[in-house]
Design a protein around this nucleic acid. Structure first.
Lengths: 183, 183
DNA sequence: GTCTATAGTAAGATAGAC
DNA sequence: GTCTATCTTACTATAGAC
């Protein structure tokens, strides 16, 4: 159960990260999900705010499962970092698809609840990497510094690649992150 | 002459980078500039597209003067990089104010002409730094790699700082860029 | 150049039948 | 749960007086 709703939420996730919150109109949403306006309000009584909440919830869960869980296994640290970075590459289609966090954090009209969820996604991502590095023997502050730099590089590379129209920039940045985190 | 228009363009620049292209409505623009709707259409007959063109033109000129020109002086390379980074810090109010490039590049409805201008701003910025580094003896590809990493770090730090609600992240990133560019 | 007034459209959201 | 039809509001843009 909730399966059909999940399909809708994935479509919303894809739309919001490509067009932002205000840029995704109800007409866009209706077309992307295949649902009419009333069906959308049946699933999300609070309208777009409810949709954003569902999408940020979905993203939180997805990132926890695909990016953070691999960091907590008992595999070697190199393999754990590599898996996180590989999942990151897939999540952004090698740099071709924008990041939900980046697209939503700029939108002025975003509900405060969703802003908090976005904030926690970024914080948890940094904390997850830092935690893996400290467990491997790195001092806490240095681990945190490297983890923050990694997320900065990922987000910055996505944006610069898009702005320049050179997807290659994102891939090359990811290629360097593994050694920079573990050097 | 053109002075009063310049004042309007600066207000538009400030509004667009804070709210994005679609997020800045004509009512917002009217309030921010102090001009009525018809006055706005007198200055910008093409409406918001013309405003975006004026703003991206202004940003191109501003960055050329404040960030790129200092890179071309005959001062020592350390001083040139330091001045560019100091101007960067001021441009973003220490991380408190969003980047026009980042805010506009996400907006789906942005005019293609403005997209090209945004693209060239980023390319010129990278090229300007790389050029200064090569003139100082660094191999061309390594200079370009470092310059790209620097812009990625600046843009990523702005976004992560905003998402996390921790302005400090931006300042700390800038602090490290000087030595990373010149090491 | 700036104003008031308004046209025309698209937005988000609801009502009520089925 | 989904549909058609509609409400209300806000948007971009224009007209025409001054």
């Amino acid at each position: 159960m909730r399966r059909s709703r999940d399909v809708v939420v994935v479509a919303l996730y894809d739309l919001f990260r490509r067009r932002g919150f205000e840029g995704a109109s109800l007409s866009d949403i209706s077309e992307a999900t295949g649902l009419g306006r009333s069906s959308l309000y049946h699933h999300f009584p609070g309208g777009k705010d409810d949709m954003a909440a569902a999408v940020t919830d979905f993203a939180t869960e997805w990132i926890g499962k695909k990016l953070l869980a691999p960091l907590k296994t008992d595999a070697p640290i190199d393999a754990r970092i590599a898996e996180m970075l590989a999942a990151t590459r897939r999540m952004y289609d090698g740099g071709a698809t924008p990041c939900l966090v980046a697209s939503l954090i700029i939108s002025p009209g975003l509900d405060q609840k969703s802003v908090v969820r976005i904030r926690n996604i970024v914080r948890d991502w940094i904390a997850g990497i830092a935690s893996a590095l400290t467990a491997n023997g790195l001092p806490g502050d240095e681990a945190r510094r490297r983890a923050t730099s990694a997320i900065i590089a990922i987000q910055g590379a996505l944006l610069v690649a898009r702005a320049c129209g050179e997807d290659r920039i994102f891939g090359e940045t990811l290629d360097r992150l593994q050694q920079e985190l573990l050097s």
